[in-house]
């Protein structure tokens, strides 16, 4: 499998009046075609900003200050806006969190789908419309022809998210960044959507980055998982390894707060302490104030430890067996 996307040392900072927010601070990962990578972390850890950085959609006061984003071997971190426009929605597509907000309320579904094709291809509207209808059918929307004429408010949240997914797949992209696409939906719909998305990715060989704060969601979906904390990836590896043998204290904490991972009757574990203040991160390991294993050493930046396919950013990781 060849890497569709390679991100190396990516840093995206926001230069606000209150100070510099290092939303993404040295992130590395890669995704290959047909592969689903789960990007997991608490809210505010920099997942969305990572996604937007790849698409070049960072607005001031933010910007990519360092690092490389290689798409199909081409560097795009410093690409010009025109070049990025040709990639967006065409070679790299994105799905957003809240389906109630992502579709324009005053434009019909067909308008919003057809424009996505016509922005990248010179074909006639009728052909484009046909392709939109097929795309709606593909994501499991009943009577797609009627839905094309509908306005967003006439569709349920689940239907709208399917429309957004259909739009993402419209131009057969090489990579899809799905930013918490099921977080706003109820559990049954969530399961259906995950199923559809997984099926489509496998069928089309699209690479996918699935962003979520919920490890349980990616446990059954992703091939690999990257766990993000305060702008950095703290643990990365095959899904089975990360879920069954987590090594970073933060990952262990996250897993402890997933209901299914707990024994029945046992209290749900919560990671102690507050999510970090991005304007005043502690020196060294950002997780230290909440970490049960923290030592003096942790006041300096922890090195990346590699073992097998995994990478952990910690001085005192749990052992290979899951517990030290």
């Amino acid at each position: 499998m060849s890497a569709v996307l390679e991100v190396n040392g990516l840093k995206t900072h926001f230069f606000t009046r209150a100070g510099v927010v290092k939303a993404v601070d040295g992130v590395d990962f890669s995704v290959s075609s047909g592969e689903i990578m789960g990007l997991v972390g608490e809210s505010g850890s920099g997942k969305s900003i990572t996604g937007f950085s790849i698409l070049g959609l960072i607005d001031s006061p933010g910007r990519i200050v360092e690092g490389s984003v290689k798409f199909d071997g081409t560097e795009i971190a410093d690409a010009r806006e025109e070049a990025l426009k040709q990639l967006r929605g065409n070679r790299i597509a994105m799905i957003f969190q809240d389906p109630m907000m992502t579709l324009n309320p005053v434009l019909r579904i067909d308008t919003q789908m057809i424009e996505a094709i016509l922005a990248h291809e010179k074909i006639d509207r009728a052909t484009a419309r046909e392709r939109c209808r097929d795309a709606l059918g593909l994501v499991g929307i009943p009577s797609p022809e009627e839905r094309l004429n509908a306005y967003p408010h006439q569709l349920s949240g689940g239907m709208r998210q399917r429309v957004a997914i259909a739009i993402a797949f419209l131009n057969r992209p090489r990579l899809i960044i799905a930013d918490e696409p099921t977080t706003a939906l109820d559990v049954t719909i969530q399961a259906q959507i995950i199923h559809e998305a997984q099926k489509l990715t496998r069928q089309t060989g699209t690479a996918m980055i699935w962003i979520t704060h919920d490890l349980a969601v990616v446990a059954g979906l992703a091939d690999r998982i990257s766990v993000m904390y305060a702008g950095r990836i703290v643990e990365q590896g095959e899904t089975d390894d990360v879920i069954d043998r987590p090594r970073h204290p933060y990952t262990v904490g996250l897993l402890g707060s997933v209901p299914s991972a707990n024994k029945r009757g046992q209290r749900l574990y919560q990671i102690e302490g507050m999510t970090p203040n991005m304007l005043a991160l502690p020196q060294g390991c950002a997780f230290a104030p909440r970490c049960t294993r923290a030592s003096d050493e942790c006041k300096t930046a922890p090195p990346i430890q590699k073992s097998g396919g995994s990478r952990i950013r910690c001085f005192h990781p749990f052992g290979e067996g899951g517990r030290a």
Binding site: L55, L57, K85, Q86, L87, R88, G89, N90, A93, M94, F96, D98, M101, T102, L103, N104, P105, E115, A116, A119, H120, A164, I167
Partner: peptide
Amino acid sequence: GQDYVKFARAKGLSTNR
């Protein structure tokens, strides 16, 4: 600042559109 504008940008639409 709305998501639908960000989504429209993510679709690769022209600024004019």
